[in-house]
Design a protein around this nucleic acid. Structure first.
Lengths: 162, 162
DNA sequence: TGTGTTGCTGGGAATAATTATCAATAATAA
DNA sequence: TTATTATTGATAATTATTCCCAGCAACACA
């Protein structure tokens, strides 16, 4: 039962030890805690959201470090950065290990509400994969991630218009 | 040959007279020129891009008005707002009248280059339509637009990594 | 287990896009 | 033409994000 266990797998923040070290980065407290917070989050968080949550665990954190680390994680492909059009970016752990189911977003252009959905992805996944392959060939572009967002009016705003 | 011609259809900026008035908005010079610039643009423009172009046609324009008008047009559903993750929004006329072919984006996370592509398969278009319908039903959400973006490395940046 | 190198950090200042304010202007309806 | 009032433009204010730099700490090597 112990075999195959890698260093840090028991610790919440230690899980990404390998990824960081593998890219030549140091494993620091801020990085571990930020990853932990992202992992525990059930939804996309803004930089400030992350800062506040991390601050509760590790109060010495600086906002600059949050931004710097997020940029690093995005570059590494561990984190995905979203823009919902409200002027602040959101961040989510990528679903490389099925940690978080792959999903997309419905964004209300009126109240800014964001609805996650993960229905209809079976068929979609197939198509996306195929498309990615074709794009890669045609444009010589290495796809690492994608975003699908539907914009419109949510239930409430729809009702208010009438 | 003259019948059916509505006011403003001959003028570049007058084309949207109906849309504006229909929503109870006034037809002003800034609005007409901004729409003209968006219409003539072959690609997505930032607010500043638009300001500069409009300024050449109508120098009295203020940057505030550009932002204000774009927000209005987005709310009206005439213009689509994009976020490519570089901190500035981009705007494009919607393709309601086939003016501009519907397209999606490939975004290089390294150099920020954006590639438009509009070669989707039949299949792809079908799926989107179907998904829109089902989402509308399930979440009571009126879809007015959508965005599909692939993130990754473009040809050049791919080459540099090796 | 100590120690030096150097990547990483935190705080504050700087930047840049966007939004708020408000008196002056101009599009409409009459 | 005139009155009404939406719209505008200049400036100030706001807000997310980045820059800068001296001090700190991870970790390779001993």
């Amino acid at each position: 039962m112990i075999m195959g266990r890698r260093w840090g797998e028991g610790r919440p923040g230690g899980r990404w030890h390998g990824e960081l070290r593998g890219c030549g980065y140091r494993v620091t407290m801020p990085r571990q805690v930020i990853l932990q917070v992202l992992d525990e989050a059930k939804k996309h968080l803004s930089a400030e959201d992350i800062f506040i949550k991390v601050h509760q665990i590790y109060p010495a954190i600086g906002l600059t470090t949050v931004y710097r680390t997020l940029e690093l994680l995005v570059r590494m492909g561990l984190v995905h950065k979203f823009d919902f059009g409200d002027g602040r970016a959101r961040y989510e752990l990528c679903d490389g290990n099925n940690e978080m189911a792959h999903h997309h977003h419905l964004i209300c252009t009126d109240c800014g509400r964001v609805i996650d959905y993960d229905d209809f992805t079976e068929e979609e996944t197939e198509l996306i994969k195929k498309t990615e392959k074709e794009l890669a060939k045609k444009y010589d572009f290495t796809v690492r991630n994608h975003t699908i967002q539907f914009y419109g009016l949510c239930k409430k705003c729809n009702a208010l218009k009438k």
